[in-house]
Design a protein around this nucleic acid. Structure first.
Length: 593
RNA sequence: GGGGGUGUAGCUCAGUUGGUUAGAGCGAUCGCCUGUCACGCGAUAGGUCGCGGGUUCGAGUCCCGUCACUCCCGCCA
């Protein structure tokens, strides 16, 4: 028998009645009745009530012992009387009569209580993460994460994928996020970069003939954090397949996603065959390429309305003349909503930095009218046209905004979420997956007006490469795709460009000379020149999947040891200064500000 | 880099129009209590009101600056 325990704190039942047991764990809670003391002993597996009274020599000591002290108790299992059974815990039918105990690990006065449902400031949680992680909810989240990863790994192996590790110290790449750099001692003045993703390596694995690869891969990007984005590092299920088209990747990933979410989430998957939405349609109907499809609201374009003679809304008309556009959201049967509902949306829009959102409600006595502050600017004909475009009926309302395309899309897409939330239109118990497909290969950089890669420079352009019209690069689409669930981008992938000539051509459109491509992407472009199979893949974000499964709004709730928003680890005190000697060895000098 | 929110006891928070000695619950310490499971009861200790400056007879409260945490924008091929 183990020196420390005969059972865990989560397994004793009536069956063990009368047996002598040893338990070890943390003191979760004490209830001291003066001559009778209850101790809830906790470990990873559960809680067992232990009991001792004043007749026992250890009673006085245990009365004084700190919560969260680790102790070993020996005693006898006894059945609880009917009235004292605790149905909330697995071991609630029994309790352990303590005969002796031993302290295994002392505990100082706690900076934060462990046994409590209270919320705490992140600062203290992160500083004492080892205490925070003892708390039930986050403890369970981390266990869930472990189970999800094991499950995914098993599924991938069953599908015939091979798991490989790729280098953590690699080279800096010019595209994409900021790199984390690591100075090289043996190569003074030179730096490694931590991989933003194993992108080039997984393609090289395909060129090496391994056919199907996956990895639970750490990825490093030196960009600012968000609630759903850890600063610094995160994990992807990185996968790549040879001799495949887009459909083949979809098939594998859709199956995996469905089985993961069916196994670990109680929520209903709305469509098991993920709807496919083109990037263009997504931007038009939802104003974003990560739409929440639980939300029934659709965005419509009202720009032409503001060119009509019988519309007198001069502010918008003037803006439209100078190139702005108008987008609108219709809400069903909102005629009886109080003024505060409409003004609430308008004020919210202003708080987002916009000039607000105009609105009116369709009414009818003899003819169609618009009720609301700006309703008077629209003729009956114009209103009928708006009703046609937005599919509205009498009693519905319209919210609309006018601005340059990028700004109006950002506002209206978030307004879509805000309005749906206010109207309680979102079913929190459902999961709405979709594919976003047909991303453009290139984009126009707002500032420099230059053509840049819109996503991944290694993606394969759609269509016959001999017939591609390179003079209109913005019209070229790529075999580039995302999975979105409930408004969260879960993964991003592509069929890769395995043809060096085509790649040089595409890079030249984005302003890279051949020599530059050879230099920056040496390993890959070289490899593609020695017989590369057509291949493609995707990389679902592990942290975000677990976040959705655990129903958490913040990625730190599913990360064991996260950094704070400023990319600091408050527990380990990272980043930190290093000694002059270390710097010297690395040929580095810190520039004083 | 920019915008919003928060900052009061170890923890979670209250603190009115600026006005006596800044409060509560949990935790800690001490005492009472033999069936609790958020046990109960009593007492004690615990405060640079984030920090600095200003206005005022008087600032936790008003103003300016600054720092920390957090949410968002930029950024994240």
């Amino acid at each position: 028998m183990s020196k420390y325990r005969s059972h865990t704190c989560g397994e004793l039942t009536k069956k063990e009645k009368g047996s002598h047991v040893i338990l070890s764990g943390w003191i979760n809670k004490k209830r001291d009745h003066g001559n009778l003391l209850f101790i809830d002993l906790r470990d990873n597996y559960g809680i067992t009530q232990c009991i001792i009274d004043k007749e026992n020599n250890f009673f006085k000591e245990l009365e004084k012992i700190q919560l969260e002290t680790v102790i070993k108790v020996e005693g006898t299992v006894s059945e609880r009387t009917k009235e004292t059974i605790n149905k909330d815990i697995k071991t609630g039918e029994i309790e352990v009569q303590i005969s002796s105990y031993e302290v295994l690990g002392y505990c100082k006065e706690l900076p934060m209580p462990v046994f409590s449902d209270q919320e705490y400031a992140e600062e203290i949680r992160l500083k004492y993460r080892f205490l925070d992680l003892r708390r039930k909810k986050i403890h369970d989240n981390i266990i869930l994460r472990s189970k999800v990863i094991s499950f995914i790994r098993k599924e991938m192996l069953d599908e015939g994928f091979l798991e490989f590790q790729t280098p953590i110290l690699t080279s800096s790449s010019p595209e994409g996020a900021r790199d984390f750099l690591v100075p090289s001692r043996l190569n003074p003045g030179k730096f490694y970069a931590l991989p933003q993703a194993p992108q080039q390596f997984k393609q090289l694995i395909m060129v090496s003939g391994f056919d199907k690869y996956f990895q639970i891969a750490p990825c490093f990007r030196d960009e600012d954090a968000r609630a759903d984005r850890s600063p610094g590092e995160f994990y992807q299920l990185d996968l790549e397949m040879s001799f495949v088209e887009q459909e083949d990747v979809f098939k594998v990933v859709e199956k995996l996603m469905i089985s993961v979410f069916k196994k670990f989430s109680k929520k209903k998957i709305l469509k098991e065959k993920f709807p496919r939405i083109t990037f263009e349609d997504a931007m038009l109907n939802y104003g974003t390429d990560k739409p929440d499809l639980r939300n029934p609201l659709i965005i419509k374009d009202l720009t032409p309305i503001f060119n009509r003679e019988d519309v007198k809304f001069d502010i918008f008309k003037k803006l439209v003349k100078s190139g702005s556009i108008v987008r609108a959201i219709k809400t069903d049967n909102t005629k009886d909503k109080p003024r505060s509902f409409f003004d609430g949306i308008d004020n919210w829009a202003k708080s987002q930095g916009a000039s607000g959102m105009a609105y009116f409600t369709f009414e009818k006595d003899k003819e169609i009218k618009a009720k609301g502050p700006v309703g008077k600017f629209f003729s009956t004909d114009a209103l009928s046209e708006i009703m046609k475009i937005t599919n509205a009926k009498v009693g519905d309302s319209i919210f609309f905004a006018c601005n340059k395309e990028n700004d109006v899309l950002k506002l209206v897409s978030t307004a879509r979420d805000k309005i749906a939330k206010d109207l309680n239109l979102i079913d929190e118990n459902s999961l709405a997956f979709c594919w976003i497909v047909d991303y453009p290969m290139f984009d126009l950089d707002e500032k420099s007006k230059k053509v840049i890669f819109s996503h991944n420079p290694f993606s394969m352009p759609q269509g016959d490469d001999k017939k591609l019209n390179f003079s209109k690069p913005l019209e070229i689409k790529a075999y580039q795709y995302d999975i979105v669930c409930n408004g969260t981008e879960l993964s991003s992938g592509a069929i890769r460009n395995h043809k060096p000539d085509l790649m040089y051509k595409l890079f030249s459109i984005a302003g890279y000379a051949k020599t530059e491509v050879d230099e920056k992407f040496k390993g890959m472009i070289n490899a593609l020149s020695y017989g590369a199979p057509p291949h493609g893949g995707i990389a679902p974000g592990i942290d975000r999947i677990v976040m959705l499964l655990a129903d958490e709004k913040n990625i730190r709730e599913v990360t064991m040891f996260p950094m704070n928003q400023n990319a600091q680890d408050l527990m380990m005190n990272a980043p930190s200064e290093v000694s002059e000697n270390q710097l010297k060895e690395l040929n580095l000098q810190v520039r004083k500000k």
